[in-house]
């Protein structure tokens, strides 16, 4: 066994490295934007609009003469914040629901899973639209919509893994030794499910970044003038013919972040989830 896999194990996990680098880059952008920005990202200078990249404005300026580099940096903060909160929310609620369904079984299981199907079948854009209309549009309702949309996948994953593990020998053994339900869940099942959930969280994070961009594009997410990559794209779209940069850079930032997260997710899966390790 060991011999056969030696080659694969020695191969460097490039996806993990590249993924970590790209995600680290986005994180660094977000952190830097907290302490330093070359320009005020919301300051308008209409007479200086549509500048191509130059020494003063490294990525050029947008339709109101705002500095694109500063806006892309500050946008990283928005993106990571919304993504992290949404995924945290989705994973936490999903894990609880999936765990409850697996543990309670029977009609509770059936009911919760059908509810998850219904939520999962709800187009996320539609639920975001509804939430934005109820709570007012903004980062909060956008984040919540993305979080809710990601609950079913975590719930199903938790439930499936819990069910599989419940039959596992070590759980049977623990029960035979008189361990209580709570102890079995927290001590024996949860640590085994956590790795799978972490991988899923990374992938879902990537989806969340795309979803945040899409919602802000539709005006349902982050509100202007706060820099959000999706919103920047929407506003730049009308002026593409005059200057492609205001649409180009935020789009590239989204793509690189999502790419990083996806690669990171793949890399983590190879490490943490031995069953899906690729030959």
């Amino acid at each position: 066994m060991k011999g056969r896999h030696r080659g694969a194990a020695r191969r460097r996990p490039w996806n993990l490295y590249i993924g970590l680098t790209l995600v680290g880059l986005t994180a660094a952008m977000a952190l830097i934007s907290l302490v330093w920005l070359p320009h005020d990202p919301i300051e308008t200078q209409v007479l200086r609009r549509f500048q191509p990249p130059n020494a003063e404005h490294w990525l050029g300026t947008d339709q109101f003469g705002r500095d694109l580099f500063s806006r892309v940096l500050a946008g990283a903060r928005t993106t990571l914040m919304v993504g992290a909160v949404a995924v945290g929310f989705g994973a936490a609620l999903g894990a609880v629901i999936g765990g409850a369904a697996a543990w309670a079984g029977r009609w509770m299981d059936e009911g919760l899973m059908r509810l998850m199907d219904a939520v999962g079948a709800f187009p996320p854009v539609l639920s975001a639209l509804l939430l934005a209309s109820v709570m007012g549009p903004g980062a909060v309702s956008g984040t919540l919509a993305i979080g809710i949309a990601s609950v079913p996948v975590f719930a199903r994953l938790t439930r499936a893994n819990m069910l599989a593990l419940r039959q596992a020998d070590f759980v049977e053994a623990a029960r035979a030794l008189g361990a209580g339900d709570v102890r079995i869940v927290t001590r024996h099942l949860w640590p085994n499910v956590a790795g799978v959930l972490l991988v899923q969280a990374t992938i879902t994070f990537a989806h969340a970044v795309l979803a945040e961009a899409a919602l802000s594009y539709l005006g349902l997410g982050t509100q202007p003038p706060a820099p959000s990559w999706g919103r920047m794209l929407r506003e730049a779209q009308d002026f593409l013919v005059f200057s492609p940069y205001p649409a180009l850079f935020p789009g590239a930032a989204i793509a690189l972040t999502v790419l990083g997260l996806n690669l990171l997710g793949d890399g983590l899966r190879d490490r943490l989830d031995p069953r899906s390790r690729r030959p």
Binding site: L233, L240, P244, G251, I254, A255, V258, N262
Partner: peptide
């Protein structure tokens, strides 16, 4: 394939319009 997964569809759409239509 990784890059394809990472591109936001609407961003791709915008630039397809710019290139092929405009």
């Amino acid at each position: 394939a990784q890059i394809g997964l990472a591109l936001p569809s609407f961003w791709l759409g915008i630039f397809l319009i710019l290139l092929f239509a405009v």
